[in-house]
């Protein structure tokens, strides 16, 4: 098998082949590397996947779709916090102003990171929807009543954690993207814990904890119930966790955060999209 001849034939058919993939030198180099590692029979397969990369009309659709879904969530969170921070004196607690500034910075970082990642995969980042953080009138004083703002902050963070968790298995084919998604996911976990701790300390919810007990909305109520639906699951890999030594039902619900499907998350955030 003569790869130079094969490449030469492709060059004749498509002079722009090296614009689509790597330079000829890089291609030859890649095959040199591959040749040492792959069985001879596997080389046509490698060539095929390279040509797929060059001519495929669509980038890996599932991964880009998932990242665009995540990007929309990050747009929502980023704009939510930047709006609150933009209202003079609204976040008046001197301990929390830097905390929400930091959280907003992370959400903006996630927007940038996801935009770059989607582009590098050959996808097109979605643009930001127009948001209505009153939830179409449900929370009319979201940016004038601090407790309402905290309630929605908690809801968005807990929703974000569940949204990423629901998508991790769809990212398994790209280890780099999977790892980055996990790294964003745990940052949302840190944010949620802090916001929940503020609500506990400020008396918004006297039984509130940094973690989720059962499917409790901690007093926020019906408009956010769908964010907590299913959080009371206690069966993991077919094992009923409360039957294990020393584990109560409440602890079993708190010890595992649960995923939400893309459809469920879209239904939740659609309340806040114009």
């Amino acid at each position: 098998m003569n790869f130079k001849n094969i490449l030469h034939e492709i060059e004749k058919a498509d002079p722009e082949i090296y614009d689509r993939i790597d330079s000829r030198r890089k291609v030859m180099h890649r095959f040199k590397d591959l040749g040492g590692k792959l069985a001879l029979t596997a080389i046509p397969l490698a060539l095929g996947s390279m040509l797929n990369k060059a001519y495929s009309q669509t980038p890996p659709p599932a991964i880009v779709d998932i990242l665009n879904f995540a990007l929309t969530l990050e747009y929502l969170e980023s704009e939510f916090y930047s709006t609150a921070l933009g209202v003079p004196g609204f976040i008046s607690d001197p301990a929390e102003l830097p905390a929400f500034t930091l959280i907003q910075q992370h959400e903006a970082d996630h927007v940038n990171f996801l935009t770059t990642t989607i582009t590098s995969l050959g996808g097109t980042p979605v643009t930001s929807p127009e948001f209505d953080f009153t939830g179409k009138g449900t929370f009319p004083n979201v940016f004038s009543n601090y407790q309402v703002f905290l309630a929605l902050a908690q809801t968005f963070e807990d929703t974000g954690i569940r949204a990423y968790k629901g998508q991790v298995t769809g990212l398994m084919s790209n280890k780099t993207v999977l790892t980055a998604a996990l790294q964003i996911h745990s940052v949302e976990g840190r944010h949620a814990a802090h916001v929940r701790y503020i609500r506990r300390k400020t008396g918004a919810s006297t039984d509130e904890k940094p973690w989720i007990n059962g499917n409790d909305t901690n007093g926020i109520g019906k408009p956010v119930e769908s964010t907590y639906a299913g959080e009371d699951n206690v069966v993991q890999l077919g094992i009923a966790v409360p039957t294990l030594p020393g584990v109560s039902n409440g602890v079993a619900t708190e010890a595992f955060d649960e995923p939400l499907s893309m459809d469920d998350v879209n239904a939740i955030i659609s309340q806040y999209i114009v």
């Binding site: 996990l182 949302e188 976990g189 595992f256």
Partner: peptide, 8 residues
Amino acid sequence: GKIVSVEA
């Protein structure tokens, strides 16, 4: 994933 966010 269910465990790591609780650790966070």
